[in-house]
Design a binder for these strands. Sequence first.
DNA 1: CCACAACCTGACCAGACGGTCAACGAAAAT
DNA 2: ATTTTCGTTGACCGTCTGGTCAGGTTGTGG
Lengths: 215, 215
Amino acid sequence: MPGDAQISRLKPGRRTDIRRENERAILEAAEKVFAEAGFGGATMQLIADMAGLPKANLHYYFATKEDLYRRVVSGIFEIWLDAASSFDNAPGPVEGIGAYIDAKMDISRTHPYGSKVWASEVMHGAPVIQDYLETTLRDWTNGRIAVIQRWIDEGKMQPVDPRHLLYLLWATTQHYADFGHQIQTLNDGKPLTDKQWRASKASVKDMVLRGIGAV
Amino acid sequence: MPGDAQISRLKPGRRTDIRRENERAILEAAEKVFAEAGFGGATMQLIADMAGLPKANLHYYFATKEDLYRRVVSGIFEIWLDAASSFDNAPGPVEGIGAYIDAKMDISRTHPYGSKVWASEVMHGAPVIQDYLETTLRDWTNGRIAVIQRWIDEGKMQPVDPRHLLYLLWATTQHYADFGHQIQTLNDGKPLTDKQWRASKASVKDMVLRGIGAV
DNA sequence: CCACAACCTGACCAGACGGTCAACGAAAAT
DNA sequence: ATTTTCGTTGACCGTCTGGTCAGGTTGTGG
């Protein structure tokens, strides 16, 4: 955490822009701080410093720490739901699951902080987003299970348990974000290069698609 | 967290037993509290209550919160290293990786709190166990990579990148502990039964072993 | 130009936190 | 029996945290 630069904050401009811009800067800083310190370890002061605002200003836009946290977690969930569309309109598992792996791996690279915040939230028993799990996520999951089952029935892949396939997909793709520090350490301390990211995606797709007998 | 029962604490007995028994109770309570609240969210008072001891007594056995935390994290790492022996002395990937999956899945079931504490530590940049990552884990990883590469050279499995195979194994097996709450929610709110755990292990082994062309 | 609303912020507060300590009790060594 | 070591604990302290608020500044519609 020490040595981190301040999140960039654009110039104010008009009245409506001020609100949007400040909320964006706060949410961006909050995502990073919550990911690196956890909810309990994060402080409003730290978030304020990183956003380049006085602490009191944070409470002007977000009443409480928990409100701010809730907004951050919801943001990630939305991004993942969008990526899930890769699944639909695919003729078979090679295209559908392949595209889903690509999308989730890209998110792990572009939104590592959000992924960590989500993981932390779920690990702590999902105190804030339990309703999401029971409604949106459950519905989405059941929908994809149906799609996978249809592919199995059509002989396009081996008869694996769709539920455990989804868990394997979530676990593996998010691992590259949540355990990114461990991966970087095992990569001689250096972040994965573009080439290594491409190789990672190829490896995961290769193993998974062969594992379900789709290739 | 609310409603959690107090960790059982056996009767004192002799002088040396007192120390061992109290340290055990504290470590067990600490593992649970750190897992459920994170390092920052955990309080010494909460750990003390769950261990059934006054807070001041915790500081008699563990000087600081960080000392206690360090002991908890090290404990998990030891358990995982033990499980890693499944890998050795195996004639091929079916036995070696199959046994490793079994062992890691069993640990996810028996030590879910420890797994979460480790995940949390790594996600926060491994401030406490960075040296472990750079020494023990790196050496272990390179050793297993060599084993996997030998299996590939011997034609016992497809030429996948051993590193990404390990990541997939870690991610998938630990997912059943770290995201256990999400899995339970998607399982109608009920914990996995013995039968479901057996099915989970079978599914993971099935997909992974086929994915690397070992079956 | 004025008045109103939105935005900003230094100073402050009550509560909770990790950690300390002096005093005490009980077991073990002498 | 006496000393010494180990274990126990309520009370306490300095610090930090989330949150408040009164009073200021800035932009905007009339």
